[in-house]
């Protein structure tokens, strides 16, 4: 009787472990922070690209939704997503805060002159330190927040066509 109990225990443990291994095969192996939504963003105070004034979280509280987009002129995926950002601005009327990440002013302005400016506000983060407070780990990355400054959605990597539809759905749901 005692032996049977031991054997059953071993068999159950082994089966459980193997089953978990089996389930794990279906998991995505790359980590990203997409799931970390529902948190409020930290307060911030950043200079605009021209350096005339500062933008803080209070400026975003008037908008129903705001998209915060992290970009740089040296980042080629940023170039790829740019046309979608312009569409978001024109078609969806969503205000975008562009955070210029570790970039030179001149290059950033050239970049916008060439490809158009989708941003309602542009601030700069020369050291990259401020972006850490937003939980950014590589650009491009975009964060959709509501007027309570709660993160609704995170986009890791360039914004794609599907993301555009997703954003418009979120906007219409309100």
């Amino acid at each position: 009787m005692k032996i049977n109990f031991k054997i059953t225990l071993v068999l159950i443990t082994v089966s459980f472990i193997l089953f978990v291994f089996f389930l794990s095969l279906g998991q995505k192996s790359q980590y990203d922070t997409r799931d970390l939504i529902g948190k409020k963003i930290d307060n911030f105070n950043l200079k605009t690209l021209e350096g005339e004034k500062n933008i803080t979280e209070v400026d975003l509280m008037d908008n129903e939704y705001t998209l915060i987009n992290f970009w740089a002129s040296w980042c080629s995926p940023c170039r790829a997503e740019h046309k979608y950002l312009i569409k978001i601005k024109n078609n969806l009327g969503l205000k975008i805060l562009g955070v210029n990440f570790k970039d030179k002013n001149k290059n950033a302005i050239d970049f916008l002159n060439e490809l158009g400016n989708p941003y309602s506000y542009i601030v700069k983060d020369n050291s990259g330190k401020h972006s850490i407070k937003f939980g950014v780990y590589g650009i491009p990355e975009s964060i959709l927040i509501n007027k309570d400054l709660i993160v609704v959605k995170k986009f890791i990597g360039p914004i794609k066509k599907e993301d555009l539809e997703l954003i418009s759905k979120i906007l219409k749901n309100l």
Binding site: F22, S24, L25, G26, Q27, S29
Partner: peptide, 21 residues
Amino acid sequence: SGILNSVHTFANDPSRGLYIL
């Protein structure tokens, strides 16, 4: 199987993992 993130990962392929499992 590539289910763990490691310095030495081989090209990931779940079907291999399934076979070994």
